[in-house]
Amino acid sequence: MVKKLRSQYPVTIAFLLVSSALMIFPFAWMLLSAFKTPADVYNYPPKWIPSSFKLTNFEEVFRKIPFLRFYANSIFIAVIQTVLQIGISAMGAFALAKLDFPGRGKIRIFMQSSLFVPEVVTMIPLFLLAAWVGMVDTYTGLIIPGLNCAFTTLLLISFFQTIPNELIDAAKVDGCNYYRIFMTIVLPNSRTAIGTASLFAFLTHWRSYMWPLIITNNVKMRTLPIGLKYLVTETQSEYQILMAASLMAIIPVLVVYMLMEKEFIQSITLTGLKS
């Protein structure tokens, strides 16, 4: 089979191999650099293979920063935010895609336009609000204002619109209310889209840096992206230690991606067909 593919599409196979290599290169470099000594990092010509495969850089990460605390905070916050965001987005998307009410189009335009506002513009007003209600240095402050529902709602709207209205009408005839339609018809039929939206939401929250930095002062409340910054000084970086920390930091993202991969690819395919 592979041989057949190779002979039929040599250019495509070559292109895919080169593309894959380009994608893999940064990860391979990070993985190898995590084991390098400072001399290896600055070696010229660049040294691919480290002098030794010791875990010194990983030990340094744990010595320099409370890595496990940051890790636990990041996982807790990203998971809660993802669950909340997808819950809110799914309900909102259902209403905007399947219910008829005045101002529906305007709400959608408003949501779309909010995506064009850079985060930094809303940062200080958002902080003022959060500080006013006493959210500084709290998990609530990290989670609630950090929710970013517009993108996932719009993503889910486009998918929910593909669910035939006849299906919903039939459920109504059978006596289902909107809540039941949402829970028993819409959600089970949208697993791929929910999976994709969850992946996007998780990634966004996992790598969020500025908001957690602004809203927290206590080191115990901080997340991994801030933790990684502890390893970068204002004038220099110990790249090998940073790479070791980054390598450990991407593990949850890889796990989430592997869990959602099937849904993610299906969703991309479906939305691609739709468009």
Partner: peptide
């Protein structure tokens, strides 16, 4: 720790 110089400027402003 309040982030690098630029981040600290934003944090202090807020």
């Amino acid at each position: 720790y309040s982030g690098n110089y630029a981040d600290t400027a934003t944090k202090v402003s807020a």
